[in-house]
Design a protein around this nucleic acid. Structure first.
Lengths: 238, 238
DNA sequence: CGCTGCCGTGACGCTTTTGTGACAGCGTTC
DNA sequence: GAACGCTGTCACAAAAGCGTCACGGCAGCG
C-alpha cells in the first residue's frame, strides 16, 4: 500500500490517534488542522488520498471536498469523509459532494485502514503494493520484480508498468488508447502503434517461460491478459 | 458505458457538482445553462442522453423536452429530468412530456449514475458491457469472449458485434438493412447479402456446440436470434 | 410440376490490422 | 566521451478478416 495520505482534522487528540494508526498501517501522513491549510497541502503534495473530518472550523469538510473537485489538478484525488454518529443524515450530501467513502466515528483503526485500501484499489488498482499473480507469473511492485515460477524476468520500466496494469486488470480487453492513458498517462502524445511494440517487447521477455501466451491479442479491439488461453482442447475442427 | 451527456442546469454550483460526478462515472459532459443553448447543442452534438433541470429560466424543462420530442432528429435522444422535492406532483406531467426517467433532488451521485445507466441500457442494450446469456450461449463484452456452456467460441470482430447485437435484441426479426445499420454503422455502404455471409460465418462458429440453431432465418424478412427453436425436435435426446 | 425468388455456401481477391526488426534520439553510467 | 539501456517511430511482412460473387438448392406459389 504505502500511500501518501492527507489527514484534515482540527481536534488534536483525534488527529494524533488517526495519524498513528495510519502510520502503523504503513502510510505516509500529512496533517492539516483546517481547510485552508489542507487546500494548500493538496496542491503542493498531491497526496494519494484525503481524509477529511466533516466538522471543521471555518470551511467545513463538504466545502473542502467541493473545492477539491472543482480544481482540475486535484479533481482525481479520492476523498474519505470522517463523521460523528448522528450526522448520518448528511451522508447523502457528503456523497453528493464527491466523497468516495464515508466513515462514522467511532471507528476501529482496522475499519478505517480497510476502507482506505478499498478506495485506493478502486482508484488505481496498480497503485497498491500487493503482489499480483496470474498463471504462474508473479509481479511484486515493492521490489519491482517479476518472476515466472522461479525464473526472474527482466523488464524495462514501461514494460513493467504495462504488465503491472494488465495483471491488475486481467481478463478485460484494453484498447490501445486505454493502455496509453493508463500506462503512459493520459497527457502524453505517442502513436497508438507504440503499444504494439511494447507488447511485443513484453512478450519477448516472457517467451523464455512460455508466459507470453498470457498476453493475448483481440483483433480489432486491443490486448488482454488472461490465464485462460481460450483454446478448446483439440476439437478436430479445421 | 461512456456516454455523451448534455447537462442542462442554470445553477452553476449544481451544474458543476453533477458534471463532476458524471465525468467520474466515465461520461463525456456537455453543459448548457438555458434551454436555447441546450436545443442548439443537442442538434450539433447529438448526445446520447440529456439531463434537464425541471426549473430553468425562460423555457422550462418540460417545454424543452417537448421540443426535443417534436423534432425528427432529436426525437430518439433519451431525457432524464432533475427536479426538487415538492415538485413530485409534476412527475406525471414530466413523464407525459416524454422524459424517460426522473430524479428528485437531493440525489446521490450513485443513484443518478445508476439511472443514467438504466436509461442507456434501455436505449442501446449493446452499448453496455453487461454479460448477455441466451440458450446457454454467453457473451461478455468486457473480456470480448463468447462461450457455449464451457467451450470457448472464436469470432471475428464483425461476427462478434453481430452476435452481440442479436443477443441484446433477441426474438425480434431484423432485416438485413437494420443489421447493417446497427452492426456495421448506418453510414457504410455494403451489399445486403454480406449480412448473409456473416450470419453463415457466425453459424459456422456456433456449429460445434449446436448453438447455430439459435440463429434463425425468417424467409423474406431477415434473421432472428431465439432460444425457442419453434420446431418440434424429432427426438428429445441431446 | 415447373417457375421464381430467396437463401446457403464455398471460393477468392483485397483491405485492414497486427507482428517484427531496425534505427535514431536521449539520458545515464562508467 | 564511449558504451549502454530504453524509448518512440517507421517500413515491411504476415495474418486475419472482409465483401463480393457465382452457383445450387429449396420454399412457396400458381
Amino acid at each position: 500500500m504505502a500511500a501518501n495520505i492527507l489527514l484534515v482534522e482540527d481536534e488534536p487528540a483525534i488527529q494524533e490517534l488517526v495519524a498513528v494508526n495510519l502510520v502503523r498501517a504503513g502510510h505516509q501522513v500529512l496533517r492539516a488542522g483546517d481547510a485552508e491549510t489542507a487546500l494548500r497541502l493538496v496542491r503542493e503534495a498531491l497526496p494519494d488520498l484525503v481524509l477529511v473530518d466533516w466538522m471543521l472550523p471555518g470551511m467545513n469538510g463538504v466545502e473542502l471536498a467541493r473545492r477539491l473537485r472543482a480544481d482540475e489538478r486535484t479533481r482525481s484525488v479520492p476523498i474519505i469523509m470522517l463523521t460523528a454518529r448522528g450526522e448520518e443524515q448528511d451522508k447523502i450530501t457528503g456523497l453528493e459532494t464527491g466523497a468516495d467513502d464515508y466513515v462514522t466515528k467511532p471507528f476501529s483503526p482496522r475499519e478505517l485502514v480497510a476502507r482506505i485500501k478499498a478506495v485506493l484499489r478502486r482508484q488505481r488498482p496498480q497503485a497498491t503494493d500487493d503482489i499480483v499473480e496470474i498463471g504462474g507469473l508473479q509481479l511484486d511492485p515493492s521490489t519491482h520484480r517479476v518472476t515466472a515460477g522461479e525464473l526472474p524476468i527482466n523488464l524495462g520500466p514501461t514494460e513493467f508498468r504495462l504488465l503491472h496494469f494488465l495483471m491488475t486488470h486481467p481478463e478485460r480487453v484494453h484498447s490501445r488508447a486505454q493502455l496509453l492513458d493508463q500506462v503512459w498517462g493520459d497527457h502524453v502524445f505517442v502513436e497508438e502503434r507504440t503499444v504494439d511494440v511494447h507488447i511485443r517487447r513484453l512478450r519477448g521477455a516472457l517467451e523464455a517461460t512460455q508466459h507470453d501466451r498470457l498476453v493475448q491479442t483481440v483483433r480489432g479491439s486491443g490486448y488482454r491478459l488472461s490465464a485462460d488461453l481460450g483454446v478448446a482442447p483439440a476439437l478436430g475442427v479445421e
